[in-house]
Amino acid sequence: MKPFTYARPAVASEAVTTLAADPDARFLAGGTNLLDHLKLGVVEPSQLVDVSRVTGTAIEELADGGLRIDAGVPNSDLAADARVRERYPAVAAAILAGASGQLRNMASTGGNLLQRTRCAYFADPTTPCTKRDLSQGCSARGGWARYHAVLGTAADGCIATHPSDLAVALVALDAQVQVLGPDGARTIPIGEFHRLPGDDPTRDTVLAHGDLVTAVDLPATTPAVRNSTYRKVRDRASYAFALVSAAVALEVADGTVVDVRIALGGVAHKPWRATTAEATLRGRPATDDEFRAAIAAELDAAAPVDSPLGGNAFKIPLVTGTVVSTLRALAGGAA
């Protein structure tokens, strides 16, 4: 680990100014991902700007019936908040499906959204990685690709997945991310917050250097969102990243899908909103066959990778099974 200096600003604006002035500086919040990367040599910042005492830790009601979650709210507190549990069960469930009790106590809401991929090649600076260095190729292709993306990838490009569980739920719920940047505050819809790799896989989000996530706003809940959950499929029963996950919200009336939201984790460079599946399902009977047809339509564009060390074609039936069984459970007896 290369040496760095440490700054602890008193207010958010000072943190943004300090960071913006140093192109090699990084914000430090919970540190659960950043410290890992510092030790691995994945990042080598000149300076850490500790924002753990400038981002708030409150969860407040918004006038429109939504909730504002300060970026500094620890994951565990967010999942435990009674309003979140009741009105946004997918959010609580997503957090609880991730990491461990200790890590959830440390990790912040803002930091959770900014986690970097757990791709083994990204985390190993001795192997080429186009996400670390645009001049290099993707080692996961042809390598250990079991955990990698099947949607939104480009030929020969990065096939990393986004590791956050929380972000998948937020994408399903159309949350808004509040950002303070060098030029002031702005709001970014969560669906536009994370990027597909495109021609610059080094960038996970649309944030610019110096942008600080200050809060996440949840819109007012709906009947579907109240009937939402998060289903995570992983090799180990706990303390493991997703092979595939799904944040699903469903409202069914008279056996017909009135409202549905589906976001997928573990399948793409960003949390994947399954808009095609949603559109296919709305107004259709809440049956297994309809669920299956809808997710099949979403997966039409999937491009799994083959590899002698483990490809990811199994994610196609896995996504299908995960989404169908989750929709079935949310539909209750309707399916």
């Binding site: 080692s139 390598g143 250990w144």
Partner: peptide, 22 residues
């Protein structure tokens, strides 16, 4: 990964051992 001659899942996140919940 024979391209690099190393165990690529060389940590507890990549090499799973049973956790309590298993």
């Amino acid at each position: 990964d024979p391209r690099f001659g190393e165990v690529i899942n060389h940590d507890f996140a990549g090499y799973h051992v049973a956790s309590n919940a298993d």
